[in-house]
């Protein structure tokens, strides 16, 4: 398990006697970005519910740094599709929420968050309410909240899907830049094949009924070359390959 941040072993889950996902084995290395793509109903969200500990698998385990964290919420962080900033809390309180829930004092939580506001492009927003922020800023605030309780692993469920395309492109670039500065490994769920190729080191394709990991693709392009990479034929061939695997 050297260098493995998060691993799963034979995860299975069914609802009402219908098997949703079966024998899922995935790995996430230190500082890696991995995407899980799949058509709707392939069990992506179910998988995240298991990884985050919100639900117990019928069978199988989740390991964080080789420690079994199956069914334990609060160990790694999970960002749902919407930014879900609480409208009644100031940005500083929203960002510190995870730490406060875990029993840290407000003062310590603010202090821990303070230094990260700049990296996340949120300078000067501490005293504002979420409704005063733009979509991109809200998303970054939600990511900062996610990061603060991540213990090194963040699960992001379509985090950029609600943004307009220009903001989305900016956020992709920003996310890669930021990942260089932070000690974080990420698993993305996305529908968007291009997004997956642009951001990921590896991509898992989830599909079938019940959902299984059908394929795994590595994107062997350094993170700092990604911007030029989008315009290459290589990018298109990855796209074609993934499309075929999805269907």
């Amino acid at each position: 398990m050297d260098g493995m941040k998060l691993t799963t072993k034979d995860l299975c889950k069914s609802y009402d006697n219908r098997i949703i996902i079966e024998d899922i084995n995935i790995k996430l290395k230190e500082k890696e970005i991995v995407s899980i793509i799949g058509i709707s109903g392939s069990g992506k969200t179910t998988l995240f519910n298991l990884l985050s500990g919100l639900e117990m698998p019928d069978k199988g385990n989740v390991f964080l740094d080789a420690e079994d964290i199956t069914g334990q919420p609060g160990r790694i962080s999970y960002m749902l599709q919407k930014d879900l900033l609480l409208p009644h809390k100031k940005i500083k309180d929203n960002v510190a929420l995870g730490l406060i829930v875990k029993g840290m004092s407000k003062k310590d939580a603010y202090k821990k968050a303070e230094g990260l506001f700049e990296i996340f492009g949120l300078e000067g927003t501490t005293e504002l309410y979420p409704d005063q922020l733009s979509g991109g800023m809200r998303q970054r605030a939600a990511l900062l909240r996610t990061y603060l309780t991540a213990n090194g692993v963040a699960l992001l469920d379509e985090p950029f899907s609600a943004l307009d395309s220009i903001t989305k492109t900016q956020m992709h670039k920003w996310y890669l830049d930021m990942m260089l500065k932070l000690d974080l490994s990420t698993i993305f769920i996305t529908h968007d094949i291009e997004e997956a190729i642009y951001l990921s080191d590896r991509i898992y394709i989830l599909g079938g009924s019940p959902g299984i990991i059908k394929n795994e693709v590595s994107i062997d392009i350094p993170r700092n070359k990604r911007e030029e990479f989008i315009e290459t034929l290589e990018f298109l061939s990855y796209k074609k390959q993934l499309k075929e695997m999805l269907l």
Partner: peptide
């Protein structure tokens, strides 16, 4: 919002914390 509650649960919050952070203010 059910997702807000889910978020709090994923942070490891119990009923009382969910009540004070999300339900009551809402």
């Amino acid at each position: 919002d059910a997702d807000s509650v889910k978020l709090l649960r994923s942070m490891g919050a119990g009923k009382i914390k969910i009540f004070f952070h999300v339900k009551f203010p809402n």
